[in-house]
Design a protein around this nucleic acid. Sequence first.
DNA 1: CGAACGCTTGACTTCTATCAACAGGTGTGG
DNA 2: CCACACCTGTTGATAGAAGTCAAGCGTTCG
Lengths: 192, 192
Amino acid sequence: MYLEGSRPTGVYCINEGLVKIYRAGSDGRVQIMKLAGPGDLAGHEAVLTEGNYKSFAEVVETSMVCYIPKNHFLKMLTENHSLTTALMAQISQELIDSEKRVTSLATMQVRERIAESLLALQEFYSSKNKGKQAPVISLSREELAAFAGTAPETAVRILSDFRQGKLISVGKRSISIVNRSGLLEIANRYQS
Amino acid sequence: MYLEGSRPTGVYCINEGLVKIYRAGSDGRVQIMKLAGPGDLAGHEAVLTEGNYKSFAEVVETSMVCYIPKNHFLKMLTENHSLTTALMAQISQELIDSEKRVTSLATMQVRERIAESLLALQEFYSSKNKGKQAPVISLSREELAAFAGTAPETAVRILSDFRQGKLISVGKRSISIVNRSGLLEIANRYQS
DNA sequence: CGAACGCTTGACTTCTATCAACAGGTGTGG
DNA sequence: CCACACCTGTTGATAGAAGTCAAGCGTTCG
């Protein structure tokens, strides 16, 4: 969809499907920053800072994405103050989430981070899934590892651990949470 | 200055001095998210998302801080659209920086991260120091470690390494960068 | 059918956190 | 003024966590 380093000429709005936003790290590894689904924007940070894209966006599921040219997007913001307010709240929330992840990566160990990642992903899927059946996280092991910030093998081992502890059930490219509070406990998520 | 978990009733604007914003991680460790100096805001994310503070703010140097009550702050934003635009660009930049740190923590090793942290801190100090002499990073080893996301002992060892390699020179609670491009190389910062 | 890919498990290595001890400086109280 | 405690910075030794390398298995796809 877009590439790191290229100049943004607008923002993308996801109508349907699933897109992953990731960054390149040291050596060949990548870090998935977030998933974007129906109703989410992508590329707005780069437009708002007048900088280049710092990340890659790639479609995970078949998606429908519409493109809003930069000047149109900025015009919408000047004309509609409540839209601006909402967007600012949205970005602030993303900032808070991102800072939380910085703390997690710096102070928690992989096992706790995987539990936390699963919970966060479940929340994401269920927010895109309003009122339907229980949400299933459908990512490959490698994608999950890139999200949690670890190696795929390590992610596999811990998932298999969680499965044996009846915390989750897994299929190929799918994970469902069975025992939410068990994961919460591992993730140390008493708060927030 | 403010505490995690408390309800924000306004934002803080630093006129003078230096404030560190940090979060509590797993066990007793803390992670310094950012420093704030003259002209910087603190606590705006929490006000804009209508949530609680997720971090702590603590004065590092003697500071002058002014307090802007929430409703006043929001009123300023509705009345001055260019202020809103500037703030949104600012928050977007913070988001991009935070995402960069997520990637660093997930994919780089400590040595690279310390180099990167030193460069980022130098940029911060020099931006607060316009046109004056070469900027000096004045943080304790423990604070630097909490910023880079590592243990104080590890930070000490790597700093001592860098000193021997004539990349930096250190004093108590002060670090100056001697060979910037050497650090850049270690930090893998060919881009951005 | 063979090749390629994702997932899984095992063995090993390496990085980094932790524990412990010590030096130097600072402040405090006798 | 000295002695003591305390804190920061430093270095060494060790243990543990997680990354890497390697091999095997089941699927899918050409």
